[in-house]
Amino acid sequence: MADRIGTTVDSVDHTRPETLEDASPSLAATRSPRVTGGTPSDEHAVILELSDVNAYYGDFHAVDSVSLPIREKEVTAFIGPSGCGKSTVIRSINRMNDLIPTARIEGAITYHGVDLYAPGVDPVEVRRRIGMVFQKPNPFPKSIYDNVAFGPKISKYSGDMDELVERSLTRAALWDEVKDKLSDSAYALSGGQQQRLCIARAIATSPDVLLMDEPASALDPIATLRIEELMYELKQEYTIVIVTHNMQQAARVSDRTAFFSVDVKEGQRTGRLVEFADTATIFTNPQHDETEDYITGRFG
């Protein structure tokens, strides 16, 4: 700015003009840029709220007191080093941790205000609304069609099953690749296709929320980018929570990022939430030194 001569114009004026058209150019056809990723608004309602969540495996305190809101139609990413409890937290959201006999959750996870751990809550019903996609693509050893149709079938879906299968596969960006071989084994698909099939299977039951536990860690880079692009499309309709050990992935796909770290005390590794903010802030101006050290690769 040193060569600015004789000007008093306030160039750090951030206010937008009343009408941009006043100053509008005649030279080129223009379109106003839409808001890009990484700058979420607060308009999205909170759909899931974790309050003081502690996780234990037997006597082992795995996660210490995590509180954070998850807003609908956004992608929320959990990142952090191994053993920081991010997978434990995501699996506690749809009560998949119930399947581990020694696992125990304290605190509250509310879904539309209802505590998912209240007595009488049926984990099966919870999982029909909060679906899950796993680290390793895990299609059933059945046909592509049956993989997608299984969820709707057990929840007594009464509509047109063919149509639902097509719609789910289309949303998962897989339809064009498999429409001619729906009765083939799902194992005939590539890893990336299998994972998209698993996503189609998860959305076939029309969940509100999709939990993704490192969904691309077993895939090659191109398949990974496809899954990421798919997540961007899916968040128009679903709330997505993703655990990833790939920081760049969190940066690319998420609106908000939670950074978890791990404390080692008396040989016990206990995970805790360090920082939760919109993704652009986490990756451009994190508030905690620990976050900074982790995302810049200086720790972890």
């Binding site: 509008s24 150019p25 005649s26 030279l27 080129a28 223009t30």
Partner: peptide, 12 residues
């Protein structure tokens, strides 16, 4: 596109 638009505003 936004660069073009900004440039057009400046050019005008």
């Amino acid at each position: 596109a936004a660069l073009v638009e900004l440039g057009s505003m400046v050019a005008a």
